[in-house]
Structures are given as C-alpha cells and as structure tokens.
Amino acid sequence: MTSSIRGTNLLSLDGLSRDAIVEILEVADSFVEVNRRTIKKVPALKGRVVASIFFEESTRTRLSFETAAKRLSADVLSLAVASSSVKKGESLRDTISTIDALGIDAVVMRHGSSGAALQVSRYVPHVSVINAGDGQHQHPTQGLLDVYTIREVLAERHGTTGREGGADLLRDLHVLIVGDIRHSRVARSDVAAFGAMGAHVRLAAPGSLLPDDVASWPADVANDFDEALEWADVVGLLRLQKERGSGAYVPSLREFTRTHGLTAERARRLRPGALIMHPGPMNRGVEIDSRVADQANSVVERQVANGVPIRMAVLYLCVAGLASGAE
C-alpha cells in the first residue's frame, strides 16, 4: 500500500491507501479556491516543467491537465505524439528519452497500452510520471475526481465542507458502475478509489462486457440492473469503448441501450437524491438518455470542473513533493 504520492508517481489507484487518497482530496480543496479567483494562478510550480504527452487522442483530459499545470505556474510542454515518430516505429524508451533530454520535472501521459506509464517511470526514474490513462488499466485522476465530486455533493447536503465531513461521507455508500467495464480504465480506477474510501461497489454490464475473472474484483455483480438502480446512491456510467472493439461484445447498440442504458424510464427507479456520473464523452441515447444526462442529479459538469483542482493537487504533490525531498 502506498500511503502518499508525495514526491513520487501516480500510476494507479490500485494499492493506494485511503490516507493517500484523502491527502489528494484535501490538497484539491485548497486549490478549488484558486479556481474561483479572478487571477487563477499560484506560484507553486513556478519554473517547473510538465510535459504532456498523449499517445492517444484526448481533448478533455489533456485540457484539464494543462490547465491545472498552468494554474500552478508550471511551464507546459505539449507533445502530440499520436501522429509523430511513434508511428514510425520509435520505441517508448526513445520517445521518452528525447523529451526527458529537454529537461522536465513531470510527465503526464496517456497511452493506448496498459502499463505504458509504469514502463516509462522505469525509463525516467528522476521524473514524476502521472498516468492520464493507460490502455484498459487505469485512469487514476478520473477515479480521484469522481470520489472528490461525490464527497463534495454529499458534504453540501450535510451543510459542511468536504474537509469537515471528511472522507467518512463515502463510507458504506452504494456505488453502481454500469456499462463497458471490461475495456474501461475508468472502471478499474473507480472501483479502487471508491473501495478504498469504504464504499460498496457493484457492477452492472452485459455478461460479455464484464471483466475476466470478475469474482476476483473487490466489487459484486448486479444480477438485475433495474434492482441495482434502486440500490444505488451513485450511478457511474461508462462509454461503450467502440475503439477497443466493444461493438463485437454486444449484438447492437440498440440492444445495449435496452438492457443497460440509463433510459428516462429506468431513471425513475433511482432513489431520490441518487447521483449520476459519467466520465465523458457521453454517447447520448446509448448509455444515457439525453434528458437524464441533464437532470439535476447529474454531476457530469461538476466532474469536469473538479478535474482541474484534482490534477493540480496531483501535480503539486508529485512534483513539489520531490523538491522538498531534495532540499
């Protein structure tokens, strides 16, 4: 168990302790305020260089990370690798070494292969590596911002702040994760994050979209999606990963929607106050009905907004933590 990400990497939420997660959430609390200022900038990472390397297309995660880095006053090197040397057969080690030679403190990277961020962390042990999504493995900051968002909403309901209400707000919470769990790095990070905070996690998916050996996961599997909706305090929907061949795992999108889409009719089964999450981008009309996506209990926009303070917290802890250790 890792008890703090201070001065290290963030590669996976699997194996991250509750304390480590709470530390990130609390540092993020302090950055929320920065984002409300007219001048949205603190000098925490002034003079530091953060390389953002996305081997896979992304707009929202990349924008969110780069915004976070800039608000910490870091210099951002943004490299579009998806269309460059990698396509010419350059090895991961060479790509990273080239970027490292420019002088960097952190790498934020997304890659289509599971484990790529961990591999890179071995090539550049002196640099903090922050995983922005690796294949079907992990998307740690998504898991963190999901936990952060739910904690924030629950704290508001209790009339406290997240810090006062603490992480205990998530204990025994019923979290239902629905959809293409098999191919989802978000599901793997959410299961780890909510699990670490003491929540009950249940999975609902067509049988073919459940992961292999699901019995080994720290979550149970819903027998009946409709019943599970009545059980849930939080419903996390996932996009069907068509680019990973998910299309072949269900007979048709129509049938997927019929069996596992959060239609308007199904949404009526939800408990009052149950929250709906989605990591985006949404396929409206497939996994989620358009009206449901815009309902008051949908926290999709708050997830996006919270992405920035969470990523600021992660960058700050990983990079500034390094400096304090070196001094």
């Binding site: 599971s114 484990g115 294949g135 079907q136 493995h137 992990q138 292999d212 050996d213 080994s216 996961w217």
Partner: peptide, 13 residues
C-alpha cells in the same frame, strides 16, 4: 495469462 491478474492489469489474457 488470463486470470485475476490480467483482469486487474487491464491486459487482454
């Protein structure tokens, strides 16, 4: 190998 480990690591087994 396909199993609990591949499932957790997000590697196809």
């Amino acid at each position: 190998n396909e199993g609990a480990l591949s499932s957790r690591l997000g590697l196809v087994g």
